[in-house]
Design a binder for these strands. Structure first.
Lengths: 234, 234
DNA sequence: GTGACTATTTGAACATGTTCAAGAATGCCT
DNA sequence: AGGCATTCTTGAACATGTTCAAATAGTCAC
């Protein structure tokens, strides 16, 4: 998500300098209080250079996030390799992220402001699909190696549901003003226990009607309904 | 949520003129494409006058929302008076809102952008507590007159949960690009059926452990934990 | 009417995100 | 070396949200 892919080492160096200086300033003064003029000055370039490499102020944060995804991939692979059950695997993924982003919690708020799926920086947008799909991929792996039998109909949706669950948690965490975000920690522990229990219960024959309802709901929400759109209301 | 409460009829007139003209322009051109200079010009006042009455461009939308709450109150009272069961009562409340805001769906997006609870325009902020509590009050009424037995521990939280459910739905609706937001309609129907079923099931003895878990979770999320903060993990 | 005080209105100025035409630097080919 | 194309850099200018000192209008008491 940057404006001009540098084709030279010199350009790459300038881009990285701008990115690093911006992140420094964001951490020191906050995203909102840092101006692009501040960034350009610290990087020792002209204001226009910042815009040559980054489409907008927000896009700098996206640059950070994209790099984070690259950094995190090996960490997540390792975490998954070391965790056995579904609970531990999902927990490991989310913890790895909370740890990685701990020093930049405030900065994450600049990303979380983009709810509109049409905004290029939104977690739900077409432009960020690549990041999203890779992230969801880790949850797929968590489910696959989680030693819990998940019914096929739910299994198709579960990685994305877990991803949404994670996004909700991260959002709560970003704005959690409790000491060391302990509220998020507690919420995480308890909610994950419930989520995993519900997943385990989902294959019970007793749960089938509810499960059908829920998967149907997810299809609607994702805009991925199957052909029975004229199905009569039950 | 306006900056200067008008003490004169003249001031009140000017404020309303600015508000009406702004809303016109927001509907015609969209919130983002409308400038405060556009607003001032259409209202026939100076740019500074707009800021004398409204703290910011966003605050104009909040002015609209506050007025909507006033408009909606009698509608919601009537809707509740005409609906009998919990499902119908909650449905009536949410439908009334979807209907009222139908012509201004895009404009609602300007409000929904404020996730940060510390932002004065956020649905979760201290500044909007008054609006929030009144809205939650309607859900309390829906629960009270809904002819469903709700266990006491859950009952304390249910109006707020239903309010959150509604906010999620409205958010989905704001960004729903399907024809006539039919996806929202389907999601609403199905999800409300599930929500009401879960509420009905909540008083079963079988559900007590889960219910305890969930109410505990809600307490954490709201930052309203009771004294057993040192409770050992089970 | 005058003076004091308050409320309202004004528009130039400011702050900051963003744009863009022009110039400089670099690399390749003849 | 010169010419050309591409990339990078610049900073003035623009757009728009916002501020604020000064001017104007209105009210009340004397």
């Amino acid at each position: 998500m940057f404006k001009n892919a540098s084709t030279t080492e010199k350009g790459e160096l300038t881009r990285n300098t701008i990115l690093e200086c911006a992140l420094q300033l964001f951490r020191e003064k906050g995203f909102n209080a840092t101006t692009m003029r501040d960034v350009a000055a610290r990087a020792g370039v002209a204001l226009g250079a910042a815009y040559y490499y980054f489409a907008s102020k927000d896009a700098i944060v996206m640059g950070f996030y994209e790099r984070a995804q690259v950094d995190l991939a090996p960490v997540l692979d390792r975490s998954l390799a070391n965790a056995k059950g579904l609970h531990d695997r999902v927990s490991a993924i989310i913890r790895a992220k909370l740890d990685y982003f701990a020093a930049d919690r405030k900065l994450m708020g600049a990303l979380s402001a983009h709810i509109d799926p049409h905004h290029p920086l939104s977690p739900f947008s077409e432009e960020t699909r690549n990041i999203r799909d890779r992230d969801i991929g880790f949850f797929s792996q968590a489910v696959e190696g989680g030693k819990v039998h998940v019914p096929e109909d739910l299994k198709a949706h579960l990685p994305r549901v877990l991803w949404l669950y994670q996004m909700g948690l991260l959002l709560f965490w970003v704005y959690d003003s409790s000491p060391k975000q302990e509220r998020t920690r507690k919420l995480f522990e308890r909610s994950l226990a419930i989520v995993v229990s519900l997943i385990k219960l989902s294959s019970l024959p007793l749960m089938r009607p509810l499960r059908k309802h829920v998967t149907r709901l997810l299809e609607i929400a994702y805009g991925e309904e199957t052909v029975d759109v004229l199905e009569p209301k039950q």
